[in-house]
Design a protein around this nucleic acid. Structure first.
Lengths: 176, 176
DNA sequence: CGAATCCTTGATTTCTTTCAAACGCTGTGG
DNA sequence: CCACAGCGTTTGAAAGAAATCAAGGATTCG
């Protein structure tokens, strides 16, 4: 990904969506389905965005010539797996507030990585998207946001968000 | 993995475990941390088991010589990612009963793959392990088992389990 | 045989969802 | 330029699902 933002999702039998991940600049879309050619996820842009397409077969050939690229690529896939397992932990043992705090801090550090403000940014996704990602309903996400704001940890105005007290946000998760 | 069974888990700050996955014969342990050399998970055997250790650096060298191995390895990591994302779906939008049914069917097909009975097997893990994996408490897992048994879908006796009505088990998830 | 662990069941509490409704923003067409 | 439709967000009240608390029973292993 070059710029903008995307979400990946899967549709279940009843036609309802479930968000499997968000993508910010510098990140890689489509790590699942690598080499298998079948992708479980659909992906849509959440705003005007730009990407750089990398044909896997070419990358594969190239990494066969360049051991360091091969190694790097293995490392990337390994990290992707680790990341997915962290989500597993998040969903299986965190409360709604812990999940939301973790989500916000995650976005923060991902924005920081591309030199955006880690404390003040626009949420590219809807509350509903966040809920589907975290396994919560829209209403719960909204309530948690309101709650965190009331505690003075964040400041939200529609899509604008500012993390006022990162330390306390971390503490919410840290208790766990 | 050659024989037996393992579980992977992570410990959180408060020292409590959370199971991140189970491994049956023919499956690969340690896909996370590939090439990064740091593993987020610990893994223990659940019974007498045997494994075959594959030093990653050697596999990496070999797959550099054999394009087909490289391709296969990429495919395996891709599948691992897909699998983890399915767990994401499971945890974020399934009820306790749906998760449990899905878990049992998953075990069933994994046993089938290694020519074990897909309908009658021993659970290598405790109820507590299952709960930690599915994001449920022991008590809930136990209650769901009892409930499924009462409905005639399964027959459980401690670690022995028999899936009596796979179709109905599938229907539980399928509704979703 | 006894201790430790695992499993089950019941009663109660807590958290999140569901249902319902109102508000606000955004973009479009008259 | 304004009115209005549509979507996203927020809030409240009630219902529901799973967790927690508590305790007894079963199984395993030394």
């Amino acid at each position: 990904m070059r710029s903008g933002s995307f979400k990946s999702y899967v549709l279940n039998n009843s036609g309802q969506g479930r968000v499997s991940g968000f993508f910010l600049p510098g990140e890689i879309i489509g790590m699942d389905g690598i080499a298998s050619k079948t992708y479980a996820n659909s992906t849509v842009a959440l705003e005007h965005s730009s990407i750089c397409e990398i044909p896997f077969t070419q990358l594969e050939k190239l990494s066969h010539q360049l051991p360091s690229l091969q190694h790097h690529f293995f490392a990337i896939t390994g990290n992707e797996i680790t990341k997915d397992q962290q989500v597993h932990t998040l969903l299986s043992s965190y409360t709604a507030e812990e999940r939301t705090a973790s989500f916000l801090l995650g976005l923060s550090s991902r924005y920081a990585r591309v030199s955006f403000s880690p404390t003040r940014f626009l949420l590219p996704m809807t509350r509903s998207d966040i809920g589907e990602y975290l396994g919560l309903t829209v209403e719960t996400v909204s309530r948690i946001f309101t709650g965190l704001q009331r505690k003075g940890l964040i400041e939200v105005n529609n899509r604008e968000i500012e993390l006022l007290d990162i330390k306390s946000l971390r503490a919410i998760i840290g208790d766990h």
